[in-house]
Structures are given as structure tokens and as C-alpha cells.
């Protein structure tokens, strides 16, 4: 019956009109997320990761979103806000980066979770609060009944992020989009939170979109990876493939410039020259060409002409580079 992927995004684009001009923050990305699997979206600051996720959730105000994003077959782009509202929090939920600012400072943690639950299932305040205590317990918060009565600023950083996850899971969604959920946390706490997300995914068969700039986090949790650069997809592949045989020069550059814990002593870091592109005045053709080692070694008119589209280079592996045979 259900042959749809859980989330099916096709040619999704987001534009902002600003005083300085039109910002094309996302220029047509495609991806799918299956139940029980994790898609990692990785890219540098400003590459469009958050904008993409907010577009799926229908949380952009004053932006032009085009293309398609289907949740279990239901089109989200352009859907009436009231229909979207009923899906938000219920079928698809979001975990934001900084739980201290993402949770409301005035209300108790329990109240905030109960509010989400009641928005979708109704019922009494008491029942919803009991439900909030349950989910707080599920995410490993000790003494959840007492903690539910506290305000976010009374939680430690790791606890707050757990509370954020509890909020997202309170209505048993099918899809969770986590936007840098561990970036603000210490590594030991990050390990706890990632462990938690993976456990919950196993238990509930969640589809997860994990947004991060940390390739280590991607390697840890992702089944499939989308590498974004300058608002579009540079490369898409299963996680193992991406790390063993990266095809796009940007992905390769990124991996080469990464200091690694498991590196040989004296291993050299090869940095990518230059800096990420401006979205107001993006480079012509391939957005990466001003920094691309392949282009620098052998300039090619195709790199500066049309924007290269994703091409399948191997099974389930796509790369947006005209030189793919060179880099293979």
C-alpha cells in the first residue's frame, strides 16, 4: 500500500527578497528519507541546510518556496497553513540547535511539552502533563515529574537538549528534523544525545534528517548523506560510499581539510583556499569553481558555464561535477 517514501523532496528551492537583492538560499535540492533511516545533510555555514529544513516544515515567512516536498505522499509546499499546522509537531517534528533560546523562557518544560500534545490530541491539561512527564522519562531525564515543573534555564545544556527532543517526540511523529542538535554541546554530552536519538529511532522507526557541519556526527548516525555547497547539492551518497569514495572535489577537499583523531602523526591538512560563496552574487556556473583544485589544475569552460547538475556516478551515488570522470 504505502509505496511512498516518508519524505520525498524534489527540486526544492527557497528565495528571499532582501534590500540588497534576491537571495537564492536553496536552488533545487532532491532527497528522500525512509522510515527508520537517517539522512545527514552536511555543509558549511550558509550553505542552506537550515533554510531547507524550515521549508519542509513550512516555517518560512516571507520566502518564496518552490518545488515539492511530500510527507508520506502529502504535498507540503503550497499547502494551506492550517493543513500544515496539523502535520507540524504531529507527523513531522523539529529539534533546534540551541535549546536555551528555542524553548520558551517563561513556561515550564512540562507545560511546553503538554501544550504541543494538547494542540494535536486535545484532552485535559492534566493528562497532557502526565504525558509530558512520560516523554521526559523516555529521553533519560532523571526525576521527570519534578523536572517537568522547572523552567528551561534551570536545566543543564545536555538536559535542555533532551527536553527539546522530548518535545519533538511527544506526539510520536514519523519524521524528526534535527538542525545541529549537538553543536552547542560538549563531546561527552553530544555522545549521550546522539546515542539517545539512535535508540529512539530504533524503537520507533523514525525517519531522521540530521543537519550538521560535523562530518564525524554524520559518520556516526547517517545512512545517507547530502553534501550542500552554496545552496545546492554537491554530492549525494550512502554514508559509507561518501567517506570511502567521495567524488565531488568539494567533498574531497572537505575530507582532506579535516583534522582527524584517527590520523597518522604528521598527516598534512590540505585546506580549501578561499571562502564560501556569496549568495547575493554567486559565482557563475559551478559555485565551487573559484576554490576548486580540479578547476585550478585544468580550467574548463563547463565549470563556469551552466550550473552542473547532479549526475549518477554509481549506484545511489550522485555528484554535481562536470569533471566526474577526472575525479573518479
Amino acid at each position: 500500500m504505502t509505496s511512498h517514501p516518508l519524505l520525498d523532496v524534489h527540486d526544492l528551492a527557497v528565495e528571499f527578497t532582501t534590500e540588497e537583492g534576491t537571495v537564492r538560499a536553496v536552488k533545487g535540492v532532491d532527497f528522500t528519507v525512509e522510515r527508520g533511516r537517517t539522512l545527514g545533510i552536511v555543509g558549511e555555514s550558509g550553505s542552506g541546510k537550515s533554510v531547507t529544513s524550515l521549508a519542509v516544515m513550512g516555517l518560512h515567512r516571507g520566502a518564496t518556496v518552490t518545488g515539492s516536498a511530500k510527507l508520506d505522499g502529502t504535498e507540503l509546499v503550497g499547502a494551506p497553513d492550517d493543513d500544515l499546522r496539523k502535520l507540524r509537531g504531529r507527523r513531522m517534528a523539529m529539534v533546534f540547535q540551541d535549546a536555551l533560546t528555542a524553548l520558551h523562557p517563561y513556561f515550564t518544560v512540562g507545560d511546553q511539552i503538554a501544550e504541543a500534545y494538547r494542540a494535536h490530541f486535545g484532552g485535559t491539561r492534566r493528562a497532557a502533563l502526565a504525558r509530558a512527564v512520560d516523554v521526559l522519562g523516555d529521553v533519560g531525564i532523571p526525576e521527570p515529574a519534578r523536572r517537568a515543573d522547572e523552567h528551561p534555564h534551570q536545566f543543564s545544556g545536555g538536559m535542555r537538549q533532551r527536553a527539546m527532543i522530548a518535545l519533538a517526540l511527544s506526539c510520536e511523529p514519523d519524521l524528526v528534523i534535527a538542525d545541529e542538535p549537538t553543536t552547542a554541546l560538549d563531546v561527552t554530552v553530544q555522545a549521550q544525545v546522539l546515542e539517545l536519538l539512535m535508540r529512539l529511532q530504533q524503537e520507533r522507526g523514525l525517519g531522521i534528517v540530521m543537519i550538521t557541519h560535523d562530518l564525524g556526527v554524520i559518520a556516526r548516525v547517517a545512512d545517507d548523506v547530502l553534501v550542500m555547497y552554496g545552496g545546492s547539492a554537491a554530492e549525494q551518497a550512502p554514508a559509507d560510499t561518501l567517506f570511502t569514495t567521495p567524488r565531488h572535489p568539494y567533498t574531497r577537499g572537505l575530507l582532506d581539510s579535516l583534522p582527524r583523531l584517527d590520523a597518522e602523526d604528521g598527516a598534512e591538512l590540505r585546506s580549501i583556499p578561499g571562502s564560501p560563496p556569496s549568495l547575493l552574487a554567486p559565482p557563475a556556473g559551478c559555485a565551487f569553481h573559484p576554490r576548486c583544485a580540479v578547476y585550478a589544475a585544468k580550467p574548463d569552460a563547463r565549470c563556469t558555464g551552466e550550473r552542473p547538475l547532479l549526475r549518477t556516478v554509481a549506484d545511489g551515488h550522485r555528484s554535481a561535477c562536470v569533471h566526474d570522470e577526472v575525479t573518479a
Partner: peptide
């Protein structure tokens, strides 16, 4: 934004 993401009116 979180409040909207929760699906509140």
C-alpha cells in the same frame, strides 16, 4: 519558531 513548529494555532 518552536511554538509554530509544535503545530500551535
Amino acid at each position: 519558531r518552536t511554538a509554530r513548529a509544535k503545530g500551535l494555532r
